[in-house]
Amino acid sequence: MKYFLRRVAFYLFTAWAAITLNFFIPRMLPGDPVHSLINKFQGRLSTDAIKSLYVLFGLDKHTTIWQDYITYWQNLLHGDLGISFTYFPTPVSEILAQALPWTLALVGFSTIIGFVLGTLAGIGLGWRRGTWADNLLPIANFFSAIPYFWLGLIAISALAVTVQVFPASGGYDPATVPGWSWEFISGAIYHGTLPALTIIISSISGWILGMRNMMVTVSSEDYVTVAQAKGLPERKVMFGYAARNAVLPSISGFALSLGFIVGGTLVAEMVFSYPGIGYMLFQAIGSKDYPLMQGAFLVVTISVLVASMIADFVYAFLDPRTRVEG
């Protein structure tokens, strides 16, 4: 129980730190570009909207930073992240609320598939080290060094342009109406296949290599030898003793590297014009839409924190040592 409380406290603290960082970054950097953009929309913005943008970017010289900080939190708790310039005058929160499910579905699904497949492959390679299977390692190594977005480009050019198997962009069939209809969902799956494949292929090698090395290390632990001495079936030793322990650091590694992976997948969304947070971020960069960028950062960070927390709890479930003692 103590472990859970500690972890929850850590994630709350990190969330606070990220939100506060988000508050301070615009204040530490020159505010002119934002100012000029707000002026551009001056006549069309309500006073409330202007006020929240001023708080967000610290442009009002009459208020103290502390007052700003309080108002920033108040706005945040009311879901007010400012107004988007790109999709003027839609509030940022609305845009992100629409984009988030796409990102969660794509990134969540493909990251977990990548992790599971990579871990399984790593178990096999680590257990059978010194056989032909070792020849796969350099290939995995090469793939782990490829940036997601470039693999995405190659995938599009090969499977969407040259051989037209998959659509090159978008998240669903534009002829369907978003909803829980079979047409829409199957279209979404069809559109999501290529981005998902890209993410799986580029993330899988990291898990393979990491898990393989953990298997090699854990295999020389005494309890694995004991399991062999007991004459247990091979599968039991491999999965119940070696892999069961080797996967633990892999899961905590998963929790910690989620932020990095999600960063990469956001870029993959940009390549595929996939209607998730990453693509919104891309749009925001193009039109210097600062409120949308800030909002995207917050939403991505909070999602990553929640996902890491879940991974941490899975870890605690798998490792009795964390459950009993803090």
Binding site: F10, F13, T14, A17, A18, L21, N22, I25, P26, L29, P30, D32, P33, V34, A255, L256, L258, G259, F260, V262, G263, G264, L266, V267, L281, I285, K288, Y290, M293, Q294, A296, F297, V300, T301, V304, L305, S308
Partner: peptide
């Protein structure tokens, strides 16, 4: 350790993007 764990877990790329975008 807390500091490095916080930095480890906050997604770096979006953070880099907002900072880089704000610096002309």
């Amino acid at each position: 350790s807390l500091l490095s764990n916080v930095f480890l877990i906050i997604p770096a790329l979006p953070l880099i993007i907002i900072v880089a975008a704000l610096v002309p």
